[in-house]
Design a protein around this nucleic acid. Structure first.
Lengths: 195, 195
DNA sequence: GTCTATAGGCAGATAGAC
DNA sequence: GTCTATCTGCCTATAGAC
């Protein structure tokens, strides 16, 4: 039996996901091919079909993994930061980090091509947004209670506003290749939520 | 010579643009084909190439016409509404109208697939955003002067924040098919700019 | 301006050997 | 698990008749 490392080297399936993830986030789901992944990985497209029977299944796996990692990042924020406003700042930083890798949020870019996606992928995109808004709404509710955050309207509405603003800021900033552009909008958003 | 009507019936080129425009705004530029347009129009794809030599040229023409119409709408707002805050509300309504037609802003959806676009189209997408932000910055400057609008930071930064927020609100609202979702974020945005 | 016919390429996908 | 070989379908685009 092969030796197991604590931080294991990725298997083929994971490497496929890594490459595909980058391609989705930079080009969109319909704008990369099995051939793109196969070439980069040094195997054939036929081998890809062994790991993921079709592109729809690959797409689903991509969102699932992305959403899991995002959920972990949110848990990490909850553990590390007690202050609600600090949590919102950290949340915005997650987006900035994605953009810094010259990528768009995966579900943001999938939202743009939503009409062309297979049903299972659509469901997962919506779930991602719902999960994010639920987390944001909780942070906002907490922040209102302990007075570290101020806003008018319902936490749900404001949560969806935060999500929309950050997604939009990424969308517009990326063609300019300008991280400062994103940060300006993010700062403005967070300033409006300061108690 | 054929009789010219005041509000002329569209020629073939314009009808092509009408169909292609709807397809871009719902599916994205790379997710529709000449065949889609040809079928709907009842002609062959070969005929399409007579009007637009290639898809890149069609794409350019689409953005140009879209940007012109948008610029006209902004001029109309300038003519009709003296109040800066009213102008911003009307601006947000332009976006809501697009979304009501189950479409995304053309340049918003093109921003998502920016990396895959031919250079001339990229240039025009950027120009569209720049023009919008220039208009917004002017309205903000005017509104600050006549005290119909209040904000902190530079008009340019706030202008780019408004654009980003509205684009993002469209992007996220469309998968839900929920216009109310967009309106909630837009109202929140405008409320933050009220003097 | 619109057609038929066709080229040439790339897409996702499968069968079957190793 | 990965390969070769192959299929079918769709894509953009062009030549040339009408």
């Amino acid at each position: 039996m092969a030796v197991r490392h604590a931080k294991h080297e990725p298997g083929t399936a994971e490497r496929i996901l890594d490459i595909a993830e980058r391609l989705v986030q930079t080009r969109g789901f319909n704008n990369f091919s099995y051939a793109d992944i196969a070439t980069e990985l040094g195997i054939t497209t036929a081998s890809l079909h062994y790991h993921f029977p079709g592109k729809a299944e690959l797409g689903q796996a991509l969102i699932t993994r992305y959403a899991e990692r995002f959920a972990e990042a949110l848990s990490q924020i909850d553990r590390d930061l007690p202050d609600a406003h600090g949590r919102l700042e950290a949340y915005a930083r997650l987006y900035a980090d994605v953009l810094h890798g010259k990528r768009m949020c995966m579900c943001g870019i999938l939202a743009a091509e939503y009409q062309t996606l297979p049903k299972p992928m659509r469901t997962e995109v919506i779930r991602f947004f719902d999960d994010n808004q639920r987390w944001l709404a909780e942070v906002l509710t907490q922040g209102r209670a302990d007075q570290s955050v101020a806003f008018s309207g319902s936490p749900d509405d404001v949560a969806q506003g935060i999500l929309s603003t950050l997604e939009g800021a990424m969308l517009v900033a990326r063609p300019y290749g300008d991280l400062a552009r994103f940060n300006a909008t993010a700062r403005q958003l967070l300033a409006g939520l300061r108690a």
